[in-house]
Design a protein around this nucleic acid. Structure first.
Length: 337
DNA sequence: CGAGTTTGACCTGCGC
DNA sequence: GCGCAGGTCAAACTCG
């Protein structure tokens, strides 16, 4: 969308916090990159550096001791929580997210400083119903629906969207991306997903897969694609927030009487001992050029990593489908080299 | 038989 | 307005 040549702007750079990429661990020797540890300060510059910005923007990992911490940090860090770019910093071009609903409070939506909210596209939260609007419907199929509701369901469907489009920009679910080194594309994260599409993306020889949470009223989606630069890296982007507990973690916790554990949960795929207590963090905003951005950054990160600059997370004994039975601590998450 | 995947068509947003 | 690219739908198919 932001278009190929469109020059990228900032995904991550605009949103320091958003820079978070969490690793899922997977497979035996996972070395998940955990980058974009950009400081709030630098981020403050806000979008300042569109484009070239990322070079300096991508920093070393922040002082979080674990993914969980890292993410939670986003939520708690006043800087992020209070809409980093929102108010004044307002980066004009892209933006990012602040998403009130998570950081601040559920109903805070209105507080959203405007346009800085991510562009948008799909129906927003709870957009389960909207989604029902069938797009690809063949003409014949429309008949029934067309009739009722004095007009046509299909039509109204369209018009609804149109209105949406004209009236106010549709809001997009906050997105969070993770980069993981894995052989398999679809990483187990404790939730059940149904693939609803696959598409070849430009500038990448690998297709992007689209998944949707299978839970009844959960509209969380995720996209999975492989990095063009490093095929061994899988980029997973979550969009939305689960409205239910992770099936896996639920059981795990239950068995251990840990149900009370962290309401906020643990990030999916926290390295090493991964546990999926919480919905994939709908914490951060994420914008379009995601893939490209990720690739770029990844490259840098990898280089740095090779030089020993960036801490990576090793999921030594991680299993794709079996989260650990204990609530790991931050320290347990990280196995610094 | 139900749940999940594949795949081609269709829709939408956006840049030119 | 047109074309491109991303995103979604849903019929057909596969698998357990």
């Amino acid at each position: 969308m932001s278009g190929p040549g469109g020059g990228g702007h900032g995904l991550y750079e605009d949103h320091p916090a958003a820079a978070g990429f969490l690793p899922f661990d997977h497979d035996d020797d996972v070395v998940a990159s955990f980058f974009f540890g950009r400081s709030a300060a630098s981020g403050g510059g806000a979008g300042a550096g569109a484009g070239a910005g990322d070079d300096d923007g991508v920093g070393l990992i922040t002082p979080y001791s674990s993914i969980t911490d890292y993410l939670q940090g986003f939520l708690q860090d006043p800087v992020y929580a209070s809409s980093p770019l929102g108010g004044d910093a307002a980066v004009k071009h892209e933006t990012v997210v602040d998403h009130p609903s998570q950081a601040g409070g559920v109903a805070a939506a209105p507080a959203t400083p405007n346009s800085s909210v991510l562009s948008s596209s799909s129906e927003a939260a709870g957009g389960d119903d909207l989604r029902r609007c069938k797009k690809g419907r063949r003409p014949e199929d429309d008949e029934e629906e067309d009739i009722d509701d004095e007009g046509s369901a299909v039509q109204s469907c369209k018009t609804n969207k149109m209105k949406n489009k004209k009236g106010a920009k549709k809001e997009r679910e906050p997105r969070v991306a993770f980069m993981t080194k894995s052989e398999v594309d679809h990483l187990e994260d404790g939730y059940r997903w149904r693939k609803y599409g696959q598409k070849a993306v430009k500038n990448s020889s690998y297709p992007r897969s689209y998944y949707r949470c299978t839970a009844p009223r959960c509209g969380v989606k995720k996209r999975v694609e492989r990095s063009e630069q490093d095929p061994s890296m899988v980029i997973t982007t979550y969009e939305g927030q689960h409205t239910h507990p992770s099936p896996v973690s639920y059981h795990m916790h239950r068995q251990q009487g840990l149900m009370h554990v962290s309401a906020r949960g643990v990030m999916p795929g926290a390295a090493g001992a991964y546990q999926f207590g919480a919905p994939p963090p709908p914490l951060l905003g994420f914008d379009e050029a995601l893939a490209a951005r990720v690739r770029m950054t990844m490259n840098q990160q990898q280089q740095q990593q090779q030089l020993g600059f960036v801490p990576s997370i090793h999921a030594a004994a991680a299993r794709p489908t079996m989260p650990p039975l204990h609530l790991h601590t931050a320290q347990q998450d990280l196995f610094l080299p």
